[in-house]
Structure formats: structure tokens, C-alpha cells
């Protein structure tokens, strides 16, 4: 096996199809946002690009899986996929870093300066009556961005209902769901490594239920925010950072859940062996990654 040459695939139409997909995506996405609020149908181009994307990805992954099953992948090539996934996750970490960075800057510098505190407090002359606080409930210009009525923090939940308020605080349950799911996906992985297919399928299934439950609870939380808390994307910087950070995380949870769902179907089709299952392992890495991001979100968005 080790003297098997590194498999260099023959020319492939899939990457070019994906690049074309991205061309359609740019056109569709840009026209969609430009036409927001009109009755234009340009969003259909965007929908088309998503259809193209899923189709291309389906055939691409199918080919990679077939190559592996055909024994074309030598150990070195398998390592290439491992390195690739690890560095891809690093790029995702840096994407979230940008938004946490923005939150930190806003909380520690921008808002206090607007409120007249600190070294650059001169920006207070813009809105002299503005008082800095976090979560920011009253924005500098209430006529443009009306602040939220209520925020999503642990402190507010506790102040409103004591211990009962904390127990009714949805992020608590989402934390339980997601941390548990990280554990269950690990148990599933152990099952696979020990050749116990039943354990693998069962615990992966449980992981998926927990993951989808998380998405549902977050949906409920957003619904509450919009209908009962007056907290929307347009309520100033608190709503902005809250929805963008939790929203991108929720989007990544959805991606992770879709990846793991596919892994479950692949397992039911008989894919994976005890020592060759990087497709699943990559998905589980991704799952642990969204879990870590969630812990940071709880700390910096909900609690502190």
C-alpha cells in the first residue's frame, strides 16, 4: 500500500462547474439584495445558484468517496484530506474572530467613547445626552435606530424571574443541548472505531436530534426577540452584534447538522470502516468546532 503512487485525479469538470456556480451566485446574491423591497424575481437566480451548488457538491463528494472505495487513495492522500479539513476549520475560526473582535471593540471603545467616557470621549459631542451602557438599550439616535425593549443576557433573565427566570432562559438549554451533542458524537465515534456499527448509528442519531433541537430552540429565541423583546437587527449595535454572532453560529450548526446527517445516511449505506472514516471524523471536528464557538458566544454575548 505504501508504495502505491499518490493519486492525481484526471481532469475533472466539477471544479469548473463549481466556479460557474459561484458566478451565478454573485449575480443572484447581488441582484437579490439590490432588489430587496421590490417585486423583482432576481432571487430566483440566487436559488438557482444554490441548486447548482448542491448538485455539484453531490457529484464531487460522490466521486471522492468512490475513489476511496476503489482503493485509489494511499495513506499520504488521506493525510491531505486531514490537513485540508484542519486548515479549513482554522479559517472558520478566523471568520468568527472578526465578529468577536467587532463586539469587543464596540463594547470597550466605541460605546464608552460615545457616552463620554475614556480617552476619546470627544465623540460625545455628537449626541451629548447619550449614556453608554451594555447591553445598549437606548441608542445615540433613537429616531434612526430605536433601541430594544429587553435584552437576552443572563443578568436580565435573572433580574426578571430569579432562579425561575434562569431556568426559562433559552440559551441555558441550548448550552445543555450542544455540549451534550459534542459528547454523544464522541461516543458515536468510539463505537465506529471499535467496529460497533449499532452504537455508531444510535449515538450519531441522538447527536442529530440534539443538534436540530438546538436550531429549533434558537428559532424560538429569535421569534421571542422579534415579537416580545423588541430586539431586531435594526435596534442598534446590541441587536446587530447579537443577531450576527448567534446567527452565523446557528448557520454553522445547521451546516454541521447537515454534514452529520449525510454521514448517518452513508453509515446506513454501509460506508466507513473502523480505521477509514475521515468523512465522518471531519464532520465531528466541525461539530466540536461549532460547540467551542457556542461556549465563546455564551461567555461574551449572553453572560458578560
Amino acid at each position: 500500500m505504501s508504495d502505491q503512487p499518490y493519486y492525481v485525479p484526471e481532469s475533472s469538470k466539477l471544479p469548473f462547474a463549481m466556479a460557474l456556480t459561484m458566478l451565478v451566485f454573485i449575480i443572484g446574491a447581488a441582484n437579490t439584495v439590490i432588489d430587496l423591497g421590490t417585486d423583482s424575481n432576481s432571487y430566483l437566480i440566487l436559488v438557482l445558484s444554490f441548486a447548482m451548488m448542491w448538485t455539484t457538491m453531490y457529484f464531487w463528494f460522490k466521486q471522492v468517496i468512490q475513489e476511496n472505495h476503489a482503493g485509489l487513495n494511499n495513506p499520504m492522500l488521506k493525510d491531505s484530506y486531514v490537513y485540508g479539513m484542519a486548515w479549513f476549520i482554522f479559517s472558520e475560526v478566523m471568520f468568527f474572530f472578526a465578529f468577536f473582535f467587532a463586539l469587543a471593540y464596540i463594547r470597550n471603545f466605541a460605546v464608552p467613547w460615545l457616552g463620554g467616557e475614556g480617552e476619546k470621549a470627544i465623540s460625545n459631542i455628537l449626541w451629548p445626552g447619550f449614556e453608554a451602557s451594555w447591553p445598549l438599550m437606548i441608542t445615540p439616535d433613537q429616531a434612526v435606530f430605536t433601541g430594544p425593549e429587553k435584552d437576552m443576557s443572563l443578568a436580565t433573565a435573572y433580574a426578571a424571574g430569579g432562579l425561575g427566570g434562569v431556568l426559562g432562559w433559552l440559551p441555558l438549554w441550548n448550552t445543555v443541548l450542544l455540549l451534550t451533542s459534542s459528547l454523544t458524537v464522541h461516543i458515536a465515534h468510539l463505537g465506529l472505531k471499535n467496529g460497533n456499527r449499532k452504537q455508531f448509528n444510535l449515538w450519531l442519531g441522538i447527536t442529530l436530534i440534539l443538534g436540530y433541537a438546538f436550531v429549533v430552540v434558537q428559532g424560538v429565541e429569535y421569534y421571542e426577540a422579534y415579537t416580545h423583546y423588541g430586539l431586531t437587527l435594526n435596534t442598534g449595535i446590541y441587536g446587530t452584534t447579537f443577531f450576527m454572532l448567534t446567527g452565523f453560529h446557528g448557520f454553522h450548526v445547521c451546516l454541521g447538522a447537515i454534514i452529520l446527517t449525510i454521514m448517518l445516511f452513508r453509515s446506513l449505506k454501509g460506508h466507513f470502516t473502523a480505521d477509514d472514516h475521515f468523512g465522518f471524523e471531519a464532520g465531528s471536528w466541525y461539530w466540536h468546532f461549532v460547540d467551542v464557538v457556542w461556549v465563546c458566544l455564551v461567555a461574551f454575548v449572553y453572560v458578560m
Binding site: M94, A98, F101, G236
Partner: peptide
Amino acid sequence: PVLAGVVTMMLMDINFGTSFFNAAGGGD
């Protein structure tokens, strides 16, 4: 990815009413 993040913030400010870069909403 940080560049992707910053253009995403622009996209949201322009089209979806967020206030990352708008001091009227507490941004900067």
C-alpha cells in the same frame, strides 16, 4: 476570513439595517 467578515458587515449595514459602522446605532 476577516476580510470576508468585514464585507459581510458592510452588506448587513447597507441592506439589512444593522449598525456596525453607524454611530447613530452605537456602532463606529
